[in-house]
Design a protein around this nucleic acid. Structure first.
Lengths: 271, 271
DNA sequence: CTCCACTGGGTACGTTGTACGCGGTTATGG
DNA sequence: CCATAACCGCGTACAACGTACCCAGTGGAG
C-alpha cells in the first residue's frame, strides 16, 4: 500500500518500533470481524461496523490493516487455525484424513461466509501453511508430491463441494431473513411449477425423495467420505494399507438426501 | 420486490402486456454483463457500467431486472447453458461424464468470475435445471437418486475444486494488474522467506517441484478425472460397466504440478 | 378518442472503502 | 534532557456503489 514492495499482509510487520503503544491489535480486529461475519454474514463486516464492535473509530483499523481485502485474508487464515491437525501424520492415513475432513467441514459450517472468499497462493497465512504441512505430510511418505497434490485436491474438492451445498440453503434463509418454513412456502410455487410441467423428471425425483431423509447430514458426509478415501487408497502403494481395502464399506443403501434443502445438493450437482 | 410474492427472477415475466415496446431485453443485458465480467471481473459489472455498455441509462435496467443479485443469477444460468449436454444419456456413462466435466471446466475457465457467485436451490434457472436432468440422467438407470446425488456431487467437487485452483492465480494477476512475471517477482520475497525458514518442507517441495511441470493442466485434469470416474465405477452395479474397470489407467507417473502457480494447487489443498 | 400501464432515464439518498490530515504520544539521537 | 521523527486514534471528505422515487413520453385497450 504505502509500501511499493507490497506482497501480502504477512510480510507487513504488525508493530513498528517507535511511537505510542497501539491500543488494539490485528488479532483483536480479526476476532471481531469473524464474530460479526458469523452472526450476520461477511457483507455485514464493514470497516465501520468492526471498528464499532471494538470501540474504535472507523479509520483506526487502517493503522493495523492496509485494506479490507487484507483483513479478509487474516480472517480466512484465522479460520484455518481452527482445524485441529496436531500430531497429524499419525501413521494411520485413513484416520488422519477423516479427522481433517471432519474438522474442515465443521469449520465451514461454523463460518459459512468462508464460501464467499477467494484464496490464492501469495495470501497463504501461517495457519494455512501449517495445515498444508500436516495434511500433505500424511500421504507424503507414500506418493510423489504431484500425486499428493492431486489426491488432497480431490479430498478437499469433496469436502468443499458437499459443505457448500449444506451452506447455500442456510445462507439463503439468513440473507432473506425468512425462517425455513416461510422460505419453503415462498419457494413452493416455483418448485411446483417445475414439477407440474413434467419437463424435469429427475428434479421432481429429487424433490419428492428428499422429503424423507434416510440419513443425517453427518452420515451422508461420512458415507461419501469413505468412498473418497477408498478412491485414494487405489492410488497408494500396497505398503500404505496392507489389507481390507474397502473394509467397513456399507452395502446397498446409499446416503439419503438430507432435508428438503438437500435438493440444494442438486446445487453441488451442477455448480 | 414490488411483488410481495417474490420468489425468484424466473417467476417474474419479462414482458408485460400493455405499454410501449421495451427497447432492450433481459438476454441483452445479461449478455453485456457477462461480457464485462469476463473482461474485467464481476465487480466491474456494475449497473451503470452495464447500462453504458448497451447504451441505456443506469436506472433503465431495473425495468428488466429487480436487483443486481437477480441479474447475477441470470448471468450464472446463462453460463450453465454453455455446457453442451445434448443427447447426454448416450449409453456410455464414462464418456458422458467426461464430456460434462470437460465442458464444465472449460466454461469456468472462460468465465472465472463464476467462482465468486453463490447459487442455491430457488435460484435454479432453466439452463441449470436442464443440465441437472441430462447429467443425472446418466447414472439414473444404475443407482438410487440419493446415490446419484452423492456421486454427481463428488464429480462436481473434483471439477470445481481443480478449476478453482487454476483460476485463483489467474484472477490474482488480473486484479493486481500485474503480469505473471511481475507478480512472481513481487511474491518471491515471501515464498523465499518461507522456504528459507525451513519450517515448511512440504511447501518447499511443492514450490521446487512445480518449477518443471511434467504435464499440462489439461492432462493433470484428465488424470484426476479418470481417478474420480474409477471411484464412481466402484459404486455402480456390474451391469453398468461389464469389464475392464480401471482400463486406460496410466502406470506410475502422477500428474505434474502445472506452473509455478499450481502451488496454488496447495490452495485447493486446504481451502 | 381517452386512459393508464408501461417506457427510458434523471436526480438523489444511504452506505461503502479509504485518502488525507489533524493534534497528541513516545522511543531515540544528540 | 530535549528536539525530532515516527507513530497513534480518528474526524472529515470523496468517489462509487445499489437503488428509491419521480418524471415526461408512449401506445394498446376501452
Amino acid at each position: 500500500m504505502t509500501d511499493a514492495e507490497y506482497v501480502n499482509i504477512w510480510m507487513r510487520p504488525e508493530r513498528p518500533a517507535r511511537g505510542p503503544k497501539p491500543v488494539y491489535s490485528r488479532a483483536q480486529i480479526t476476532e471481531a470481524a469473524v464474530r460479526i461475519a458469523d452472526a450476520e454474514g461477511l457483507e455485514a463486516a464493514t470497516m465501520r461496523r468492526i471498528a464499532a464492535e471494538i470501540g474504535a473509530g472507523a479509520m483506526s483499523l487502517y493503522r493495523y490493516v492496509p485494506s479490507r481485502d487484507d483483513l479478509v485474508a487474516l480472517m480466512a487464515d484465522r479460520l484455518m487455525g481452527e482445524i485441529d491437525v496436531t500430531g497429524l501424520p499419525s501413521g494411520d492415513w485413513r484416520a488422519d484424513l477423516t479427522r481433517y475432513a471432519d474438522g474442515l467441514r465443521a469449520m465451514w459450517l461454523r463460518h459459512p461466509w468462508i464460501a464467499g472468499v477467494q484464496r490464492s497462493l501469495p495470501s497463504f497465512g501461517p495457519n494455512q501453511l501449517l495445515l498444508i504441512e500436516r495434511l500433505m505430510g500424511v500421504l507424503d511418505p507414500f506418493v510423489s508430491i504431484d500425486e499428493n497434490l492431486s489426491l488432497v485436491g480431490m479430498l478437499n474438492g469433496y469436502v468443499e463441494g458437499t459443505v457448500r451445498e449444506e451452506i447455500s440453503s442456510a445462507e439463503e434463509f439468513r440473507r432473506s431473513g425468512l425462517s425455513e418454513s416461510e422460505w419453503m412456502a415462498r419457494s413452493y410455487p416455483y418448485v411446483d411449477r417445475l414439477v407440474k410441467s413434467g419437463e424435469y423428471p429427475i428434479f421432481t425425483k429429487i424433490v419428492m425423495e428428499a422429503r424423507q431423509p434416510h440419513l443425517s447430514r453427518d452420515e451422508q458426509f461420512r458415507y461419501g467420505l469413505r468412498r473418497v478415501l477408498d478412491c485414494i487408497a487405489l492410488a497408494l502403494p500396497s505398503t500404505a494399507e496392507p489389507a481390507a481395502l474397502r473394509a467397513g464399506r456399507d452395502e446397498r443403501d446409499g446416503p439419503g438426501a438430507g432435508s428438503w434443502s438437500t435438493s440444494g445438493g442438486a446445487s453441488g450437482a451442477t455448480q
